[in-house]
């Protein structure tokens, strides 16, 4: 396998949602998405709210189904198509290959922040004490006060939760990293730290696909910008469906 081969490659990727509870309305999101990310490279997906940026990242992570096309990921010495991989293969990819910093932290009740951060390391076999030590170090670097480490993040501020989320995503050394608005709720000082973390990941050869609204962060972190509106499925797509799962968004409207 050549060193030049991208770690991540999307070809002809399409996504739409069919909302059965709304009379089967079909919401096209994207079609024909094509891009590749090589080792040490950071690409930024750009486009207005609702263009499908988060949906593309979620498809790469296997969180959303991919309707058409291929999502190739280089995993150890294989090339795996996430769009067709079975659940076990996707779970393994998440342990060994693809990291993801989501827009919002999904907090588990009763689990301390430090354990939330250490969990991906534990899952890949790192002993508990060293996983927690490394988690603490990164939390400290992200200015999460030590008195919070032992508490579940559910009660933290938005910015604190996001930094816990970032620590969790950045801690394991995985070859591919997906970032969905990692700096959205951070102040300038913490934003600068996240920029440094991104730079360090790139230097280690990580391939990064990101969504960043902040122009300054984007120009400094991204090597390339991919305009997602080029892959718009149709113009009928409504503008405000990218906040989480559209299925749930519409259910809320109905109630």
């Amino acid at each position: 396998m050549s060193a030049m081969e991208p770690l991540l490659q999307l070809t002809g990727v399409a996504k739409s949602f069919t909302m059965h509870l709304q009379g089967g309305i079909r919401l096209p999101v994207v079609a024909g998405v094509e891009f590749a990310v090589g080792a040490g490279e950071c690409v930024a997906l750009a486009g207005p709210s609702g263009a499908g940026k988060s949906s593309v990242l979620k498809m790469i992570f296997g969180n959303y189904r991919c309707e058409a096309g291929q999502i190739f990921v280089r995993h150890e010495d294989e090339r795996i198509d996430v769009a067709r991989a079975d659940p076990r293969a996707i779970l393994k990819l998440r342990r060994t290959t693809i990291g993801y910093v989501s827009q919002f932290l999904r907090a588990v009740p009763r689990v301390a922040a430090i354990d939330v951060v250490a969990e991906p390391l534990l899952a890949s076999g790192v002993p508990r004490e060293s996983a927690r030590a490394r988690a603490g170090k990164l939390l400290a670097r992200l200015n999460v006060p030590e008195r919070l480490w032992g508490l579940p993040p559910a009660t933290f501020s938005g910015g604190e939760q996001q930094r816990v989320n970032i620590a969790r995503g950045f801690l394991p050394a995985l070859p591919i990293l997906l970032l969905d608005e990692p700096t959205a709720s951070l102040d300038a000082a913490n934003r600068a730290i996240v920029m440094d973390l991104i730079t360090e990941k790139k230097e280690c050869g990580t391939a990064i696909a990101s969504i960043v609204h902040d122009d300054d962060v984007r120009t400094r972190a991204a090597d390339r910008v991919i305009d997602i509106t080029r892959f718009a499925a149709t113009s009928a797509c409504s503008g405000e469906v990218d906040t989480g799962s559209p299925i749930r968004t519409c259910a809320r409207d109905v109630r």
């Binding site: 949602f17 979620k58 969180n63 959303y64 189904r65 996707i90 779970l91 799962s245």
Partner: peptide, 8 residues
């Protein structure tokens, strides 16, 4: 996959 079925 659990999160896939529940989110999509």
């Amino acid at each position: 996959l659990t999160d896939q079925v529940l989110d999509d």
